[in-house]
Amino acid sequence: MHADQAEATQESARPTVLHVVEAWGGGVQTIVLDYVRAVPEVRHLLLMADGDPFRVASEAEAAFDGVWRMPPGHLARIREVGRLFRQLRPDVVHAHSSMAGGYVRLAAPVPTERIVYTAHGYSMERTDLSWYAAAAVRAAERILSWRTGTAAGSSPRENELARSLRKRQRTAYVPNVVRPREGTGMAPRPRSGSPADADGSCLPPRTVAAVGRLCTQKDPEFFAEAAVEGRRLMPSSNWIWLGGGDSRHQERLERAGVTVTGWLEHHTLQRLLAQADVYAHSALWEGAPMTLLEAVGLRRPVVARRIPALESLGLPGLVDTPQELATASVALLTHDPGPAAGARLADLFFEHSPERQRAMLRHVYGH
Rank of each mutant, 00 (worst) to 15 (best):
P111H: 08
G245R: 03
N238W: 01
S201K: 06
D91N: 04
P90N: 01
R271Q: 14
R344G: 12
A304M: 05
T9K: 08
R299G: 15
T291I: 15
A139Y: 00
F64A: 05
N176I: 02
T268N: 15
M70H: 07
I115R: 02
I143S: 15
L325N: 06
Y132G: 15
S145C: 10
A139C: 09
L18R: 01
P204S: 15
A133L: 08
V302Y: 05
P111L: 08
E61C: 13
R179S: 12
V364Y: 02
Y365Q: 03
R83I: 00
D246K: 02
E141K: 14
A6G: 13
A340F: 00
R147N: 09
D320P: 02
H352I: 08
R213W: 00
F223R: 05
P175K: 01
Q357A: 06
E294C: 10
A288E: 07
A359D: 11
M360H: 08
T16Q: 11
A63M: 08
P289C: 12
L293H: 05
A309D: 10
G245L: 04
L264W: 05
L284G: 15
E158L: 04
R69F: 12
S98N: 06
A226H: 03
V319G: 06
L47A: 06
E324W: 04
A108P: 00
L165I: 15
L203P: 08
R168M: 13
A136V: 07
F223Q: 09
V278A: 01
A256K: 01
S123W: 00
E311G: 14
E229G: 01
R189K: 10
R306D: 14
D91G: 12
L361T: 10
L333W: 02
I307F: 04
S123A: 14
W68F: 08
G243M: 01
A276Y: 11
M48A: 15
T30Y: 02
R189C: 09
P90G: 03
R163L: 10
R147V: 10
R14H: 06
G244N: 13
P195T: 06
R189A: 14
A198N: 09
W241N: 06
